[in-house]
Design a binder for these strands. Structure first.
Lengths: 133, 133
DNA sequence: CGGGATCCACTACGATACTG
DNA sequence: CAGTATCGTAGTGGATCCCG
């Protein structure tokens, strides 16, 4: 993703944003965020380790980073229980839940068109003229 | 993004894909792809330089890379006219056009909720306990 | 348990040339 | 015009160790 705090140009004036969907992409579709949101959405409120186990291959460091980002953006709520051992729970916020129909739409497109993309790739790779251009 | 051609794990077996929207993200929402698709969609078939000028700040090298990827995935059609000087035109394919309602949905979510995200960020940054954790 | 701190590796990206 | 080539860099992710 592009870290909003260190980005040189503010979001509003970035010329690339003649495209109105770009800002959403930065927020919702940076790496690991969709698996995190999806897991949170389908399994409800859960602890750090549960997320870590369910998402598989994600390292705790990255999981923490992404959860912080999502918390900062108001898509996820973090609850800290000062116990021994400590317990932290994550859940989707109302704002995060508002993404649900979008994700459903996305999943639907995937179901219908993902095979077409793969066929296009195979066709492209099989064409000699593409390799030697 | 993750370059599809050099990725070690094939898409189908990647454990991260308990989330059905991840593969779509790799294809459609990698960096620069949404501005490219958006420009192609709103201005129709156009040449390399036109894209380059309209997207602003993108370098020809990166534009080429992304266009190749989109062409390989079947979302964009490239037409080469062997003339002097050479002329190349890009346009959205039928598959690419099938993303239009998705993009509209995305733009709608942005219009409604982007300010909420920014307010959440301000609130998070203003909270001292977040900085000194 | 839920991280933070540190070090390292990769590579995508940007800038600057240069060509058919 | 439409790229390719080369170089340099910075942002991320992985691995490891450690702490409250």
């Amino acid at each position: 993703m592009t870290d909003t705090r260190t980005r040189t140009t503010p979001t509003a004036t970035d010329p690339e944003l003649a495209c109105p969907v770009s800002p959403v992409v930065d927020i919702v579709f940076s790496r690991w965020t969709t698996p995190i949101l999806w897991t949170l959405h389908t399994h409800g409120r859960q602890r750090f380790v549960e997320l870590e186990r369910r998402i598989a291959r994600i390292t705790p460091k990255v999981l923490t980073q992404r959860l912080r980002q999502l918390e900062r953006d108001g898509l996820v709520v973090r609850t800290y229980h000062p116990e021994v051992p400590p317990r932290v729970e994550y859940e989707i916020s109302a704002l995060g839940r508002s993404l649900a129909p979008l994700f459903a739409h996305l999943a639907e497109w995937a179901a219908e068109n993902l095979t077409k993309v793969e066929r296009a790739r195979d066709a492209y790779d099989a064409d000699d003229t593409n390799g030697s251009r």
